[in-house]
Simulated scan of single mutants.
Amino acid sequence: MTERQSIYDAIGGIDKVDELVDRFYDLMALEPHFQDLRSMHPQDLSGSREKLKFFLTGWMGGPDIYSPKYGHPMLRARHLPFKIGLKERDQWLACMYKAMEECGISGNAAKQLEESFLNTADWMRNQAN
């Protein structure tokens, strides 16, 4: 990954974002240890999948496709109705890290994503523990 190359480009663009998000939600739905995380989402995950794909595309340095359709992300505000403590944060991170690994995202891009995901997930917490 070069200094000017975005994480989006480094991991493979929209195809890799789509693969990552699909694997993330598949793991969430299939793995029993992500049950609490899954229960926070609607039965039909298609809208959640689309929103995360659109958001991550811009967040990783690709085109902004989220805001024109859904407005400003307002991540924390949109998640305030949900109890997000350490357990929920850690389940989200474990699910995303496993999806990254299974999708072959590694090296510097993976390290940068892991750190950014950790910072963002921790910022989303609205419960002390």
Rank of each mutant, 00 (worst) to 15 (best):
Asp18Tyr: 06
Gln5Met: 15
Cys103Tyr: 00
Glu114Met: 14
Leu93Thr: 14
Phe117Asp: 04
Pro68Ile: 08
Tyr97Ser: 01
Leu45Ile: 08
Lys83Pro: 04
Arg76Ile: 03
Asp64Gly: 02
Gly47Phe: 14
Asn126Gln: 12
Leu93Ala: 08
Ala10Leu: 03
Gly71Pro: 05
Phe55Leu: 08
Ala109Met: 08
Phe82Ser: 09
Lys87Leu: 01
Cys95Arg: 01
Asp122Thr: 13
Asp122Ser: 12
Tyr70Leu: 08
Gly47Trp: 13
Leu80Ile: 09
Asp22Pro: 08
Phe117Cys: 13
Trp92Ile: 11
Gly47Cys: 04
Ile14His: 04
Gly61Pro: 04
Ser116Phe: 08
Leu56Ile: 04
Ile11Phe: 02
Met60Thr: 09
Glu88His: 07
Leu20Val: 06
Thr2Met: 10
Phe117Arg: 05
Lys111His: 02
Glu101Lys: 14
Gly61Ser: 00
Lys51Glu: 05
Asp44Pro: 10
Asp122Pro: 10
Glu115Ala: 12
Met100Tyr: 01
Asn108Gly: 05
Ser6Leu: 09
Arg23Gly: 02
Asn129Glu: 05
His72Met: 07
Trp92Tyr: 07
Phe54Ala: 15
Tyr70Met: 01
Gly107Glu: 00
Gly85Ala: 11
Ala10Glu: 10
Glu114Ala: 15
Leu113Tyr: 00
Lys53Asp: 15
Tyr97Leu: 14
Pro32Ile: 03
Ala29Lys: 09
Arg23Asp: 07
His41Asn: 00
Ala77Asp: 14
Tyr25Glu: 05
His79Gln: 02
Trp59Arg: 01
Ala109Asp: 04
Phe82Cys: 06
Ser39Ile: 14
Asp90Gly: 04
Ser39Ala: 14
Pro73Ile: 05
Phe54Val: 03
Lys51Thr: 00
Leu75Ile: 15
Arg38Gln: 09
Val21Thr: 10
Glu31Tyr: 00
Leu45Asn: 07
Ile84Arg: 02
Pro63Ala: 12
Phe82Ala: 05
Tyr8Leu: 04
Phe34His: 01
Tyr66Leu: 06
Lys16Asp: 08
Thr57Cys: 12
Gln35Trp: 13
Asn129Met: 06
Ala109Val: 11
Lys16Asn: 02
Gln112His: 12
Met96Phe: 11
Tyr66Glu: 01
Leu93Asp: 01
Cys95Thr: 03
Pro81Phe: 10
Gly47Tyr: 12
Pro68Thr: 03
Met96Ile: 09
Lys69Ile: 13
Phe24Cys: 11
Asp64Trp: 02
Leu93Lys: 14
Ala94Tyr: 04
Glu50Lys: 00
Ile84Thr: 04
Gly13Val: 06
Arg4Asp: 09
His41Leu: 08
Arg23Pro: 10
Ala128Thr: 12
Gly13Phe: 15
Gln5Val: 15
Glu115Pro: 01
Trp59Asn: 03
Asn126Ala: 11
Trp92Glu: 02
Asp18Leu: 08
Ile105Gln: 04
Gln5Ile: 13
Gly107Cys: 06
Gly58Trp: 03
Ala29Gly: 14
Arg78Cys: 15
Ala10Trp: 01
Tyr70Lys: 00
Pro32Cys: 10
Met40Gly: 07
Asp26His: 14
Trp59Glu: 03
Thr2Leu: 02
Gln35Tyr: 06
Pro63Gln: 05
Tyr66Gln: 04
Asp18Gln: 15
